[in-house]
Amino acid sequence: MTASRQGYDGIVATVPVTIPYVRYSIESAHWWLGMALGALIRQAGIAKTHIDGMCVSSFTLAPDTAVGLTQHLGMSPRWLDHIPMGGASGVIGLRRAARAVQAGDADIVACLAGDTNHVDSFRHTVSQFSRFAQDGVYPYGAGGPNASFALLTRHYMNASGATREDFGKLCVAQRDNALRYPHALMKKPLTLQQYLDARAITEPIHLFDCVMPCAGADGFLVMREARARELGLPFVRILSTLERHNAWMDDPIQTRGGWTMDRDSFYAHAGVGPQDVDFMQAYDDYPVINLMQIEDLGFCDKGDAPQFVRDHSFTVDGSFPFNTNGGQLSVGQAGAAGGYLGMVEALRQLTGQAAGTQVSNAKIGLVSGFGMINYDRGICTAAALLARSDA
């Protein structure tokens, strides 16, 4: 029997920062993470020594982990976590930082994610990503996420009746949102016809189904509400979170994620349902995982996401605002910061700081994370329900 979960009362997230993404960078991951830390300190109006906890996510920080980074940054935290969980890192960082502050193990936690992108960084990252893939997949020439997501996408299309037009509608809507977001690397409008005509990468994956690796960093702070008020910082309340790893391991190929194992308790803990969510930020390295998250988090029944896509616009000013800054497919994927992209956007939305991407009267947002893809599945899933301070 699972014990009842403690709430997050009095613990808040604040100060979303983004270090503008670039396609390639000669700087190290340490530099990008340091830039994010500096931005957090300046925007919060605090001293570096006031930050006594850190969560760090990065693929290109090696040979360092979060421990090595503390020396580079001149930090001496009393609580530290290294979260190498890719697209789930932002939610899991929030979740663990909140519990650390709640327990008194830290007063202010800086959650940081960032990566560099040298000309050959992505190939190196993919080659070292997973022992499972090295042993079981690469000898057959199927390395990298494109082949894995082609497998998942084709299987999903066969099972649900989804079409490339359905995936394309989401990509086009996200690009429309990205044109309102200053940090998006994709600056040109995208039409459905352009999406459909794009060159094939690994069928049925085509060019605009794939994220573009880049360099960048994102971050936010977690602290007590009283401290945020004392500092005059707009903040977001944490209603509920979940994380689940290696879910449904007996499924021959992934058709559902760990969200489905904990969804009911996730919403019950928050005291809200899917119908109360004003926007959704989903991890979106490929469109198929967007549809899976929409289903698995209860916005429609399993297999019905294609029709859900046909019924909604997904734009900032339309129905079911989704990846309101454009998501990774139009902003870029700055390595592990891809798992933070939706989180910092949600914090901006719920503190009225989203500028051109602002959803009118947004009170409750959902952030979903998905990470660490092996051959036929992603093994990390996470989600958070967040609320405006007065909601």
Rank of each mutant, 00 (worst) to 15 (best):
T260F: 08
T260S: 15
T260C: 12
M261D: 13
M261H: 11
M261P: 02
D262H: 13
D262S: 13
D262Q: 14
R263Y: 13
D264V: 14
S265V: 12
S265I: 13
S265E: 13
S265H: 11
S265A: 15
F266T: 05
F266N: 05
F266V: 07
Y267V: 05
Y267M: 09
Y267L: 10
A268M: 11
A268Y: 07
A268S: 14
H269F: 08
H269D: 09
H269S: 12
H269T: 06
A270E: 01
G271R: 01
G271E: 04
G271Q: 01
V272F: 14
V272C: 11
Q275C: 13
Q275E: 15
Q275R: 15
D276K: 01
V277Y: 04
V277T: 06
V277W: 07
V277E: 04
D278I: 02
D278L: 02
D278C: 00
F279Y: 04
F279S: 00
Q281K: 02
Q281T: 01
A282H: 01
D284H: 00
D284N: 01
D284K: 01
Y286L: 00
P287N: 11
V288T: 01
V288Y: 09
N290A: 00
L291R: 03
L291F: 08
Q293P: 03
I294A: 08
I294E: 07
I294Q: 01
I294N: 02
E295I: 05
E295H: 04
E295Q: 07
E295C: 05
E295K: 07
D296V: 05
D296Q: 02
L297M: 10
L297T: 03
L297E: 09
F299V: 09
C300A: 14
C300T: 15
C300P: 14
K302V: 11
G303S: 04
D304N: 10
D304C: 10
D304E: 15
D304W: 09
P306C: 06
P306S: 05
Q307I: 03
Q307T: 07
Q307C: 00
F308G: 07
R310S: 10
R310T: 09
D311E: 15
D311A: 15
D311C: 12
H312E: 12
H312G: 13
H312L: 12
H312I: 12
H312Y: 13
S313G: 10
S313C: 11
S313A: 13
S313H: 08
F314V: 07
T315K: 03
T315S: 05
